[in-house]
Design a protein around this nucleic acid. Sequence first.
DNA 1: GTCGCTGCAAAGTCTTTGCAGAGAG
DNA 2: CTCTCTGCAAAGACTTTGCAGCGAC
Lengths: 155, 155
Amino acid sequence: MPISTNFSTKTIEYDNLLEEFKQLLKKNGLKFTIQREVILNTLYNSDEHLTPESLHHLIQDKAPELKTGIATIYRTLSLLEDSNLVTSLSFGAQGKKYELGAKDHHDHMICTECGDITEFVDDSIEKRQHEIADSLGFKMNDHSMQIYGICKNCQ
Amino acid sequence: MPISTNFSTKTIEYDNLLEEFKQLLKKNGLKFTIQREVILNTLYNSDEHLTPESLHHLIQDKAPELKTGIATIYRTLSLLEDSNLVTSLSFGAQGKKYELGAKDHHDHMICTECGDITEFVDDSIEKRQHEIADSLGFKMNDHSMQIYGICKNCQ
DNA sequence: GTCGCTGCAAAGTCTTTGCAGAGAG
DNA sequence: CTCTCTGCAAAGACTTTGCAGCGAC
Protein backbone atom coordinates (compact mmCIF):
# COMPACT_ATOMS: atom_id res chain seq x y z
CA MET A 1 0.00 0.00 0.00
CA PRO A 2 1.33 3.37 -0.99
CA ILE A 3 1.94 6.04 1.52
CA SER A 4 -1.30 7.50 2.57
CA THR A 5 -2.43 10.44 0.61
CA ASN A 6 -4.00 11.56 3.81
CA PHE A 7 -6.64 14.09 4.61
CA SER A 8 -7.93 16.43 2.00
CA THR A 9 -5.25 17.82 -0.19
CA LYS A 10 -5.95 21.45 0.23
CA THR A 11 -3.11 23.49 -1.10
CA ILE A 12 -3.19 26.94 0.29
CA GLU A 13 -3.24 29.65 -2.33
CA TYR A 14 -0.52 32.19 -2.09
CA ASP A 15 -3.01 35.03 -1.99
CA ASN A 16 -4.70 33.57 1.05
CA LEU A 17 -1.42 33.01 2.74
CA LEU A 18 -0.34 36.55 2.04
CA GLU A 19 -3.63 37.85 3.35
CA GLU A 20 -3.22 35.84 6.50
CA PHE A 21 0.25 37.22 6.95
CA LYS A 22 -0.96 40.79 6.52
CA GLN A 23 -3.75 40.29 9.02
CA LEU A 24 -1.31 38.90 11.47
CA LEU A 25 1.03 41.82 11.07
CA LYS A 26 -1.75 44.33 11.46
CA LYS A 27 -3.10 42.62 14.52
CA ASN A 28 0.27 43.01 16.16
CA GLY A 29 1.00 46.52 15.08
CA LEU A 30 3.71 45.37 12.73
CA LYS A 31 4.37 46.61 9.25
CA PHE A 32 4.10 44.90 5.93
CA THR A 33 7.35 45.39 4.08
CA ILE A 34 8.65 44.32 0.74
CA GLN A 35 11.31 42.23 2.40
CA ARG A 36 8.74 40.32 4.38
CA GLU A 37 6.66 39.68 1.34
CA VAL A 38 9.62 38.46 -0.66
CA ILE A 39 10.60 36.09 2.11
CA LEU A 40 7.13 34.63 2.40
CA ASN A 41 6.86 34.35 -1.34
CA THR A 42 10.19 32.66 -1.71
CA LEU A 43 9.31 30.15 0.95
CA TYR A 44 6.03 29.52 -0.80
CA ASN A 45 7.64 28.94 -4.14
CA SER A 46 10.30 26.64 -2.86
CA ASP A 47 9.83 22.92 -2.58
CA GLU A 48 13.01 22.73 -0.61
CA HIS A 49 13.53 22.96 3.06
CA LEU A 50 15.56 26.11 3.29
CA THR A 51 18.24 27.23 5.64
CA PRO A 52 18.35 30.93 6.45
CA GLU A 53 21.43 31.12 4.31
CA SER A 54 19.94 29.36 1.29
CA LEU A 55 16.85 31.54 1.58
CA HIS A 56 19.10 34.54 1.60
CA HIS A 57 20.82 33.41 -1.56
CA LEU A 58 17.55 32.75 -3.32
CA ILE A 59 16.33 36.19 -2.42
CA GLN A 60 19.50 37.90 -3.49
CA ASP A 61 19.09 36.28 -6.89
CA LYS A 62 15.40 37.03 -7.08
CA ALA A 63 15.45 40.59 -5.86
CA PRO A 64 19.04 41.81 -5.79
CA GLU A 65 17.94 45.44 -5.70
CA LEU A 66 16.57 44.95 -2.20
CA LYS A 67 19.93 43.92 -0.82
CA THR A 68 18.03 42.05 1.86
CA GLY A 69 20.30 41.43 4.80
CA ILE A 70 20.71 38.07 6.44
CA ALA A 71 19.57 39.63 9.70
CA THR A 72 16.22 40.40 8.16
CA ILE A 73 15.90 36.83 7.04
CA TYR A 74 16.49 35.64 10.57
CA ARG A 75 14.14 38.20 12.04
CA THR A 76 11.38 37.36 9.61
CA LEU A 77 11.79 33.63 10.01
CA SER A 78 11.48 34.00 13.76
CA LEU A 79 8.40 36.07 13.29
CA LEU A 80 6.88 33.56 10.93
CA GLU A 81 7.76 30.69 13.17
CA ASP A 82 6.26 32.35 16.21
CA SER A 83 3.12 32.89 14.20
CA ASN A 84 3.12 29.27 13.08
CA LEU A 85 3.30 30.21 9.46
CA VAL A 86 6.55 28.36 9.06
CA THR A 87 8.00 25.36 10.80
CA SER A 88 11.62 24.69 11.49
CA LEU A 89 13.42 21.40 11.41
CA SER A 90 16.70 20.83 13.11
CA PHE A 91 18.71 17.78 12.28
CA GLY A 92 22.01 16.51 13.48
CA ALA A 93 24.04 19.05 11.62
CA GLN A 94 24.09 22.59 12.78
CA GLY A 95 21.51 25.06 11.65
CA LYS A 96 17.81 24.80 11.09
CA LYS A 97 15.82 24.38 7.95
CA TYR A 98 12.51 26.09 7.44
CA GLU A 99 9.40 25.28 5.49
CA LEU A 100 5.98 26.80 5.18
CA GLY A 101 3.79 25.49 7.92
CA ALA A 102 0.72 26.23 5.88
CA LYS A 103 1.45 23.26 3.71
CA ASP A 104 -0.25 20.04 4.58
CA HIS A 105 1.17 18.32 7.57
CA HIS A 106 3.75 15.69 6.78
CA ASP A 107 6.79 13.97 8.16
CA HIS A 108 10.28 13.69 6.77
CA MET A 109 12.44 10.97 5.36
CA ILE A 110 16.03 12.15 5.27
CA CYS A 111 18.88 10.72 3.28
CA THR A 112 22.00 10.76 5.39
CA GLU A 113 24.17 10.59 2.30
CA CYS A 114 22.94 13.44 0.18
CA GLY A 115 20.81 15.31 2.71
CA ASP A 116 17.77 15.09 0.52
CA ILE A 117 14.41 15.26 2.25
CA THR A 118 11.29 13.43 1.12
CA GLU A 119 7.96 14.18 2.70
CA PHE A 120 5.30 11.70 3.61
CA VAL A 121 2.20 11.27 5.70
CA ASP A 122 0.82 8.16 7.26
CA ASP A 123 -2.56 8.21 8.84
CA SER A 124 -2.06 5.25 11.09
CA ILE A 125 0.98 6.85 12.67
CA GLU A 126 -0.79 10.16 13.04
CA LYS A 127 -3.62 8.46 14.86
CA ARG A 128 -1.37 6.43 17.07
CA GLN A 129 0.53 9.54 18.15
CA HIS A 130 -2.61 11.06 19.53
CA GLU A 131 -3.39 7.92 21.46
CA ILE A 132 0.08 7.88 22.94
CA ALA A 133 -0.06 11.50 23.99
CA ASP A 134 -3.42 10.92 25.61
CA SER A 135 -2.20 7.94 27.51
CA LEU A 136 0.75 9.90 28.88
CA GLY A 137 -1.49 12.74 29.97
CA PHE A 138 -0.05 15.12 27.39
CA LYS A 139 -2.04 17.72 25.60
CA MET A 140 -0.51 17.18 22.19
CA ASN A 141 0.07 20.23 20.04
CA ASP A 142 2.41 19.07 17.38
CA HIS A 143 4.89 16.43 16.50
CA SER A 144 7.67 15.79 14.12
CA MET A 145 9.04 12.58 12.86
CA GLN A 146 12.09 11.90 10.80
CA ILE A 147 13.24 8.67 9.29
CA TYR A 148 16.91 8.52 8.40
CA GLY A 149 18.31 6.25 5.77
CA ILE A 150 19.86 6.03 2.36
CA CYS A 151 17.69 7.09 -0.51
CA LYS A 152 17.25 5.15 -3.71
CA ASN A 153 19.79 7.26 -5.59
CA CYS A 154 22.53 6.93 -3.03
CA GLN A 155 22.25 3.24 -2.38
CA MET B 1 22.73 5.82 13.97
CA PRO B 2 21.44 2.28 13.95
CA ILE B 3 18.03 1.62 15.22
CA SER B 4 17.62 -0.80 18.04
CA THR B 5 17.24 -4.31 16.86
CA ASN B 6 14.84 -5.39 19.50
CA PHE B 7 12.17 -4.27 21.82
CA SER B 8 13.07 -6.41 24.76
CA THR B 9 13.74 -4.41 27.85
CA LYS B 10 17.28 -5.35 28.58
CA THR B 11 19.09 -2.62 30.40
CA ILE B 12 22.72 -2.65 29.55
CA GLU B 13 25.07 -2.98 32.48
CA TYR B 14 27.66 -0.32 32.87
CA ASP B 15 30.47 -2.84 32.85
CA ASN B 16 29.38 -4.17 29.51
CA LEU B 17 29.08 -0.72 28.13
CA LEU B 18 32.51 0.20 29.37
CA GLU B 19 33.94 -2.93 27.88
CA GLU B 20 32.33 -2.18 24.57
CA PHE B 21 33.80 1.29 24.68
CA LYS B 22 37.27 -0.03 25.41
CA GLN B 23 37.05 -2.53 22.57
CA LEU B 24 35.99 0.19 20.25
CA LEU B 25 38.86 2.41 21.25
CA LYS B 26 41.37 -0.35 20.90
CA LYS B 27 40.04 -1.33 17.51
CA ASN B 28 40.63 2.18 16.28
CA GLY B 29 44.00 2.70 17.85
CA LEU B 30 42.58 5.19 20.32
CA LYS B 31 43.39 5.45 23.96
CA PHE B 32 41.29 4.86 27.01
CA THR B 33 41.59 7.88 29.26
CA ILE B 34 40.11 8.85 32.58
CA GLN B 35 38.25 11.71 30.96
CA ARG B 36 36.60 9.40 28.49
CA GLU B 37 35.57 7.01 31.18
CA VAL B 38 34.13 9.77 33.35
CA ILE B 39 32.14 11.09 30.43
CA LEU B 40 30.69 7.69 29.60
CA ASN B 41 29.96 7.03 33.23
CA THR B 42 28.24 10.33 33.75
CA LEU B 43 26.07 9.79 30.71
CA TYR B 44 25.22 6.34 31.99
CA ASN B 45 24.22 7.59 35.39
CA SER B 46 22.11 10.41 34.14
CA ASP B 47 18.45 10.02 33.35
CA GLU B 48 18.51 13.40 31.70
CA HIS B 49 19.21 14.32 28.17
CA LEU B 50 22.37 16.32 28.58
CA THR B 51 23.80 19.24 26.70
CA PRO B 52 27.58 19.36 26.37
CA GLU B 53 27.52 22.18 28.86
CA SER B 54 25.40 20.40 31.46
CA LEU B 55 27.57 17.32 31.08
CA HIS B 56 30.58 19.50 31.68
CA HIS B 57 29.07 20.89 34.86
CA LEU B 58 28.18 17.47 36.15
CA ILE B 59 31.69 16.28 35.53
CA GLN B 60 33.28 19.28 37.16
CA ASP B 61 31.25 18.53 40.26
CA LYS B 62 31.96 14.85 40.13
CA ALA B 63 35.66 14.95 39.37
CA PRO B 64 36.90 18.51 39.85
CA GLU B 65 40.49 17.35 40.08
CA LEU B 66 40.42 16.38 36.42
CA LYS B 67 39.60 19.89 35.31
CA THR B 68 38.07 18.33 32.23
CA GLY B 69 37.83 20.92 29.50
CA ILE B 70 34.70 21.57 27.52
CA ALA B 71 36.64 20.76 24.37
CA THR B 72 37.19 17.25 25.61
CA ILE B 73 33.49 16.88 26.26
CA TYR B 74 32.76 17.88 22.70
CA ARG B 75 35.46 15.66 21.30
CA THR B 76 34.33 12.67 23.29
CA LEU B 77 30.67 13.18 22.48
CA SER B 78 31.50 13.29 18.79
CA LEU B 79 33.51 10.14 19.18
CA LEU B 80 30.70 8.41 21.03
CA GLU B 81 28.14 9.57 18.56
CA ASP B 82 30.17 8.40 15.59
CA SER B 83 30.47 5.07 17.32
CA ASN B 84 26.76 4.94 17.95
CA LEU B 85 27.19 4.73 21.68
CA VAL B 86 25.31 7.96 22.19
CA THR B 87 22.57 9.64 20.27
CA SER B 88 21.98 13.32 19.90
CA LEU B 89 18.70 15.13 19.78
CA SER B 90 18.30 18.60 18.42
CA PHE B 91 15.09 20.40 19.06
CA GLY B 92 13.95 23.86 18.22
CA ALA B 93 16.29 25.60 20.58
CA GLN B 94 19.93 25.80 19.78
CA GLY B 95 22.36 23.15 20.81
CA LYS B 96 22.04 19.42 20.96
CA LYS B 97 21.22 17.11 23.80
CA TYR B 98 22.86 13.75 24.15
CA GLU B 99 21.78 10.45 25.64
CA LEU B 100 23.26 7.01 25.76
CA GLY B 101 22.29 5.19 22.63
CA ALA B 102 22.80 1.88 24.35
CA LYS B 103 19.55 2.38 26.17
CA ASP B 104 16.52 0.85 24.60
CA HIS B 105 15.25 2.65 21.58
CA HIS B 106 12.49 5.09 22.30
CA ASP B 107 10.91 8.27 21.07
CA HIS B 108 10.35 11.56 22.85
CA MET B 109 7.40 13.47 24.13
CA ILE B 110 8.45 17.02 24.86
CA CYS B 111 6.66 19.56 27.00
CA THR B 112 6.88 22.93 25.34
CA GLU B 113 6.23 24.66 28.67
CA CYS B 114 8.82 23.18 30.95
CA GLY B 115 11.08 21.46 28.44
CA ASP B 116 10.69 18.15 30.15
CA ILE B 117 11.21 15.06 28.03
CA THR B 118 9.33 11.81 28.48
CA GLU B 119 10.38 8.72 26.61
CA PHE B 120 8.12 6.16 25.03
CA VAL B 121 8.07 3.34 22.54
CA ASP B 122 5.24 2.15 20.39
CA ASP B 123 5.65 -1.01 18.40
CA SER B 124 2.97 -0.27 15.87
CA ILE B 125 4.64 2.97 14.92
CA GLU B 126 8.03 1.33 14.78
CA LYS B 127 6.70 -1.27 12.42
CA ARG B 128 4.89 1.21 10.25
CA GLN B 129 8.02 3.29 9.82
CA HIS B 130 9.83 0.38 8.28
CA GLU B 131 7.00 -0.17 5.87
CA ILE B 132 7.02 3.45 4.84
CA ALA B 133 10.76 3.52 4.29
CA ASP B 134 10.51 0.39 2.17
CA SER B 135 7.77 1.80 0.05
CA LEU B 136 9.79 4.94 -0.63
CA GLY B 137 12.81 2.92 -1.61
CA PHE B 138 14.79 4.04 1.42
CA LYS B 139 17.20 1.88 3.27
CA MET B 140 16.14 2.93 6.73
CA ASN B 141 18.84 3.28 9.35
CA ASP B 142 17.22 5.19 12.10
CA HIS B 143 14.44 7.51 12.94
CA SER B 144 13.42 9.95 15.55
CA MET B 145 10.05 11.11 16.55
CA GLN B 146 9.04 13.85 18.87
CA ILE B 147 5.60 14.74 20.08
CA TYR B 148 5.23 18.26 21.40
CA GLY B 149 2.59 19.25 23.88
CA ILE B 150 1.87 20.32 27.40
CA CYS B 151 2.61 17.80 30.08
CA LYS B 152 0.32 16.89 32.90
CA ASN B 153 2.05 19.19 35.36
CA CYS B 154 1.97 22.25 33.17
CA GLN B 155 -1.60 22.00 32.01
C1' DG C 1 59.66 6.01 23.95
C1' DT C 2 55.75 6.88 20.79
C1' DC C 3 51.83 8.88 19.46
C1' DG C 4 47.28 10.02 20.80
C1' DC C 5 44.95 13.07 24.42
C1' DT C 6 44.13 17.03 27.08
C1' DG C 7 43.41 21.89 28.60
C1' DC C 8 43.72 26.31 27.11
C1' DA C 9 42.86 29.86 24.21
C1' DA C 10 42.14 31.36 19.76
C1' DA C 11 39.39 30.80 15.72
C1' DG C 12 35.16 29.46 13.46
C1' DT C 13 30.09 29.09 12.59
C1' DC C 14 25.67 30.48 12.97
C1' DT C 15 22.44 33.84 15.06
C1' DT C 16 21.16 37.97 17.48
C1' DT C 17 21.50 42.79 18.60
C1' DG C 18 22.50 48.02 18.50
C1' DC C 19 22.09 51.87 15.75
C1' DA C 20 20.98 55.48 12.54
C1' DG C 21 18.69 56.21 8.45
C1' DA C 22 14.63 54.51 5.46
C1' DG C 23 9.92 53.63 4.88
C1' DA C 24 4.98 51.94 6.00
C1' DG C 25 0.73 53.58 7.79
C1' DC D 1 4.77 62.57 11.26
C1' DT D 2 5.45 58.44 14.13
C1' DC D 3 7.28 54.36 15.10
C1' DT D 4 8.66 50.02 13.08
C1' DC D 5 12.06 47.99 9.78
C1' DT D 6 16.20 47.45 7.56
C1' DG D 7 21.20 46.87 6.46
C1' DC D 8 25.44 46.89 8.42
C1' DA D 9 28.64 45.69 11.55
C1' DA D 10 29.61 44.38 16.01
C1' DA D 11 28.50 41.19 19.60
C1' DG D 12 27.00 36.63 21.28
C1' DA D 13 26.42 31.69 21.81
C1' DC D 14 27.98 27.42 20.77
C1' DT D 15 31.66 24.39 18.61
C1' DT D 16 35.90 23.28 16.67
C1' DT D 17 40.81 23.63 16.15
C1' DG D 18 46.01 24.48 16.96
C1' DC D 19 49.50 23.69 20.06
C1' DA D 20 52.73 22.17 23.54
C1' DG D 21 53.01 19.35 27.38
C1' DC D 22 50.96 14.98 29.43
C1' DG D 23 49.93 10.26 29.75
C1' DA D 24 48.24 5.50 28.00
C1' DC D 25 50.28 1.52 26.14
